[in-house]
Design a binder for these strands. Structure first.
Lengths: 156, 156
DNA sequence: CAAGATTGAGGTGTCAATCTTG
DNA sequence: CAAGATTGACACCTCAATCTTG
């Protein structure tokens, strides 16, 4: 196959993602929910053992712009969605600890998010399509495995 | 199939895109090339008839954040990559007109971009994968058709 | 008044420099 | 000195006015 097919695949991947992402973000804003970055952080913390991660680990796992998680955490802490706590055994590290409020907001957000995902993406595909997508995209990217137990203070 | 497959497909799509995008952006920065937003604008103009578009049309076609194309255009104009020109027959509109310098930069950028796309994406897929991707993603998103000839001053 | 583009104010992202702890 | 996080300065994005032209 010629080289142009490679480029077509990328172009389709790139353009489709951006358009779908734009559409979802727009609706999220219209509903009045916090943006995806917030969801990303809350969900990442919720999945972590004891709902907490050190900032270094958190920024590694987040799927959006990860530079300077400090600023984003400031805002989330102001809103009561997480709290900071110095790590007792290594006082250089700081935990971001999900609050009950943060957990509830994440669940609330999901109710809308899942509908939007279905509306703009999954709903237009068959089960075969879903499987094929996961198989193909799995070739270019594999989710990193994180240890579920990060011990007292984690460690990246 | 259970609902979780729909979500898996989205999660894979979302995460893979962000990771690949991050990786490419990182390398682009390391090389010292302008970011993708710039490429996007230059390429969009290059494809347009006479290498020019009104700002309203340009912002519609661009595949990244499109709010306030004015600011981005300011920077590109400072760098000599495009020039502004009032549209003679409708003086409300303004053309963004690609310069020779802008065209050359776009071509120069492509030399690196295509290698990065191959390295982080296309190169790890078969021709079948490419075809399947285009077919599947085509279901959730179709490229808008723009008239090639936008007349004297275009019109969105 | 509506459409097209710009401006100003404020929010957010980014990088380098800094502070603290190991 | 190295690792983890924060801060300050600056670039950039976003939204609501604003200005101009039809």
């Amino acid at each position: 196959m010629s080289d142009s097919n490679h480029i077509d695949a990328w172009a389709t991947y790139f353009k489709s993602f951006n358009r779908i992402h734009q559409a979802i973000v727009e609706e999220i804003k219209a509903i009045g929910l916090p943006p995806m970055e917030v969801y990303d952080v809350l969900w990442t913390l919720e999945q972590a053992p004891e709902h907490r991660l050190r900032f270094a680990d958190l920024s590694e796992r987040v799927y959006l712009d990860r530079y300077n998680i400090t600023r984003l955490a400031d805002r989330l802490e102001e809103q009561g969605l997480l709290v900071r706590k110095r790590c007792p055994s290594d006082r250089r590290g700081v935990w971001a600890l999900l609050t009950k409020q943060g957990l509830e907001l994440r669940r609330e957000m999901w109710k809308s998010y899942k509908d939007l995902i279905h509306k703009h993406f999954s709903g237009q595909l068959t089960s075969e399509d879903h499987k094929d997508l996961v198989r193909i995209l799995g070739k270019v990217w594999k989710e990193k495995e994180y240890e579920k137990d990060v011990g007292d203070c984690g460690g990246s």
